[in-house]
Nucleic acid binder design. Structure first.
Lengths: 251, 251
DNA sequence: CGAGTTTTTGAATGGTCTCAACTGGAGTGG
DNA sequence: CCACTCCAGTTGAGACCATTCAAAAACTCG
């Protein structure tokens, strides 16, 4: 595990200049500086796609904040059913302070860099650093709101709406590359299997696949090349997701 | 609204002796004392069953922590579909600091007493009082964990499992009266309509009703007197909910 | 290219919803 | 006190949506 060793330079470039950025890593430049002053142990750990970072019910290996990459957080039921609970991306955190065992399993979906400290250290940092505490609170409030909005997806939306909703959210937050020049097309990376999409949407892989072809036949998007989605008509995708402009559904 | 006036004595008896109790109101004795010292405005507001306390998309009227009673927090979709997101009970909070509009609608399910301050005041209290900040953070971390566990209910469980799961959770947290003397029976108050149960479980009222009779015919419980549930066999109810002892599912 | 995996597609099954009718209890007014 | 209304809850029948099982097609990687 080699705590105390930074294996990568990439974190430096992303450190906040004055501890204010929402999009920066939770362990920003200020906190890194404090860690160095106090000579606390920390590490940047890297994982390859498919690597299991934490396992539900087992001791959480560390407390970390993602620097680069995407990971999936899931809950398993005793009989093997799996429910995705969130897609993690910078600066989302992995691990729980104050709790021995991990509540979720976490799997890397891409190459991943995580800034790690021990759970105990994070807990004491949380007590000492008001700024960190505030950012952590706001991060968790955002998580809570997203989780509750996701309840409407699983509880009240049809399978077409669910898939469209997921793609809209991913387009907004993770995989958005760029609108293709000269067109209205949007290209979105969704580097996960149909099965895992199903685990987030609470549907079978077959239904996920069927709904992709459904959206394709409607001329809304193309998913040939199954990990890259080209959106032809974003507005119609939002409509298919049951998202409307007047704020009734959008969070 | 008459901020600054305590309309009820009932809060006093529940104030913490030394700011440590998990089950106390968020605005415990210590904080009440601080509020008095600084002569800040606060109020205890009361609501009757069915009263709408906050409306989704409208300005949140206050920031408050429940002293007594139960309330339902729900999200509405544009076409009228409703998804319950949490059952609120002491010391849960209503309203959002730092946000103008309420994300959820909140309805009183019983007589309700809420300790209220303005959102602005709560925000500044949060900055000033480390103890309050810690308790608020822990409260929200608990909310997040419950919301994510609920995702497994909506995404991966059958309607029988959903209803059984809800009853188990309510038995654990809200409506538990007592095991009836001389028997193994448990009596649980569930003071909400079948329709609202459906809104929490993502099912129609008819299916909720059918699943009640299903559990009745299996001899697990009785729901005649539809707002009071008598559980004959708690263990079998847990099994029906897909909750097992080995921690795979329990949070 | 060939083996294994992922994705798509088809057909049949089954679970949940919708529509509709009926039941039962609470409250109202004659 | 009883008939009436109203609302919540129950039950049934049929439709529909999503799942399961099965097989074919496409893609990945050695």
């Amino acid at each position: 595990m080699s705590l105390g060793l930074v294996h990568s330079k990439s974190f430096e470039g992303r450190a906040c200049p004055k501890c204010s950025g929402e999009t920066e890593n939770l362990f920003c430049a200020c906190i890194l500086q404090i860690l160095n002053q106090k000579s606390c142990s920390y590490a940047v750990r890297t994982f390859k796609p498919g690597a299991v970072i934490a396992m539900e019910g087992y001791k959480a290996p560390f407390f970390g904040s993602i620097i680069t990459g995407v990971a999936a957080q899931e809950i398993s039921l005793a009989d093997g059913r799996v429910q995705g609970v969130s897609l993690l991306r910078p600066p989302d955190v992995i691990g729980n302070h104050l709790q021995e065992t991990s509540k979720y399993s976490v799997t890397a979906l891409s190459n991943l860099e995580i800034f790690c400290v021990s759970s105990e250290l994070f807990d004491s940092l949380l007590r000492e650093l008001p700024e960190l505490r505030l950012r952590f609170l706001n991060m968790k409030l955002g998580d809570l709101e997203r989780a509750r909005n996701w309840l409407t997806v699983l509880g009240r939306r049809s399978s077409t709406e669910r898939l469209a909703y997921l793609i809209v959210r991913v387009a907004q937050k993770i995989g958005f590359d760029a609108s293709l020049p000269g067109t209205n097309e949007l290209r979105v990376n969704l580097p996960i299997t149909r099965e895992r999409i199903g685990s987030f949407l609470g549907m079978s892989t077959e239904t996920v696949s069927r709904e992709f072809t459904h959206l394709e036949r409607a001329g809304i998007l193309s998913a040939r090349n199954s990990r890259v989605i080209t959106i032809f008509n974003y507005r119609r995708l939002e409509i298919a997701a049951g998202i409307d402009d007047d704020g009734g559904t959008i969070h």
